[in-house]
Design a protein around this nucleic acid. Sequence first.
DNA 1: CTTGTATTAACCGTTACGGTCAATAGGGAG
DNA 2: CTCCCTATTGACCGTAACGGTTAATACAAG
Lengths: 203, 203
Amino acid sequence: MNDKFFKLPLEKQRRIINAAYKVFSESSYKKAPMSEIADESGISKALLFHYFTNKKELYLYLWANAIEMTRKAVAEYKTLETDDFFEMLKRSLLSKCSLMREYPHLYAFSLRAYYETTPEIQNSIQENFNDVSKASEMIVFEKMDILKFRKDIDIKTMYAEIFYAVDGYMLKKYRSNCIIPDEIEKEIIVLIDFWKKVYTQEV
Amino acid sequence: MNDKFFKLPLEKQRRIINAAYKVFSESSYKKAPMSEIADESGISKALLFHYFTNKKELYLYLWANAIEMTRKAVAEYKTLETDDFFEMLKRSLLSKCSLMREYPHLYAFSLRAYYETTPEIQNSIQENFNDVSKASEMIVFEKMDILKFRKDIDIKTMYAEIFYAVDGYMLKKYRSNCIIPDEIEKEIIVLIDFWKKVYTQEV
DNA sequence: CTTGTATTAACCGTTACGGTCAATAGGGAG
DNA sequence: CTCCCTATTGACCGTAACGGTTAATACAAG
């Protein structure tokens, strides 16, 4: 990895990274061509290889970058500094929307990278991510105030269901190729308000 | 398309079709290789081309087949012969699980095919499917008994949310490569019962 | 053995790939 | 303008993969 990449204008760095996120989110590692990334970011393939020694390095950089950016965004939105589950959820998803403004395909990339099967890539990825997501799930379950929920529902099922829905929603957005953060933000808020109404105990 | 394909033992037909569903569900049309389909089904590439004139023909056959099989399964389960929305949902999803026993990757293929962007393929696909799914959604909304729902929720949002969750759930199953119909059936039923409890009006 | 069919290994021309390198473009200093 | 340095690229390399074909084989039935 060439340090000169970081001396590029941020705008250009972003263009390259986004192109890479896009291409790697649409195909598996093996079938995602470097040339397409170069084209998409408007630079030559040779220059891309000038910044990143090889495909694997670029991919792993993207992964590390995605993890770090996500962590940062979640922290900035003070996601875990509340005991209201739906507030947590809202902060978490809004933080991801804000990230989406700068890196539209980061979410789709992360979703796919975790299940990447190419051996040389797989090893470098799954362990740490699994740890992180399990850990944060535990924190969520510890922090949140259970009393606010309807008593007759299973919270684990609710939790799983909500995350299935979020993934399903995002999948649809990506597949139909319409990533408009403002729109997504609105629709996500509608969903969260819906969930809150449905799952919260009426008093 | 060679008629001899249909004279093959059903078991062998199924093996070939399933291999094709699998490969086409994992990559875009353009990046899904015929050789992989041949390997996966245990026949030679030459034989595969003996049955199907070319890649496009195979793909379009798979699409037509998926539509037809799904339609049949949904009808067999009498999906629309009730006015209880959750019963409809259950029958619809159980019919898809039963289909999954014979064609594990048909669901994933359908999910992807609809968003296929290759021009020569795209045209032949989207129109009719969109019509069908819109039409069946309309039937569902006309048939179902609205009085059973909680009055304070928006039914369109609920409907969308449920389908996001189903897709998100299936996505996860496919990505983690664990398509076990029995297990999926159980988990789907848990989800549906959960939804029924949550969204139904208490009397 | 003969005949017809199911099946394939080997092949073809083309394209796409990851990665390299020598050459160029461009801008600032003198 | 010249010199120099860096950013950038077109052209290239060897290899592998692709869709599709064909001539040859395996095999079963008579």
